[in-house]
């Protein structure tokens, strides 16, 4: 196979597989945060920023995959 084709396959696999974990994790975080806000609406001001921070941390493995993908494609 040509190098270009291999690069395209590698990039697709890297981001596709790398996105699975963070997606599940962020889904769990969002659902738990919604549950918490539903149970105690007054606490939403405290929960929302925490939710964003934890989501960003969860997202980081996905971002690693993305950086690798971008390096494969454009580096």
């Amino acid at each position: 196979m040509e190098t270009e084709a291999l690069k395209a396959i590698a990039a697709g696999l890297a981001i596709g597989l790398g996105a699975i974990g963070p997606a599940i994790g962020e889904g769990i975080i969002a659902s738990k945060a919604m549950e918490a806000i539903g149970r105690n609406p007054e606490a939403s001001g405290k929960i929302t920023p925490l939710m964003f921070v934890t989501m960003a941390i969860t997202e980081s493995t996905g971002i690693y995959a993305l950086v690798i993908t971008l390096i494969i494609l454009f580096g």
Binding site: A56, E59, S60, I63, Y64, L66, V67, L70
Partner: peptide, 13 residues
Amino acid sequence: LSLSFRLFGNIFA
């Protein structure tokens, strides 16, 4: 690594 990749990756993406 984790701090820098997070910011760079998000903005560049």
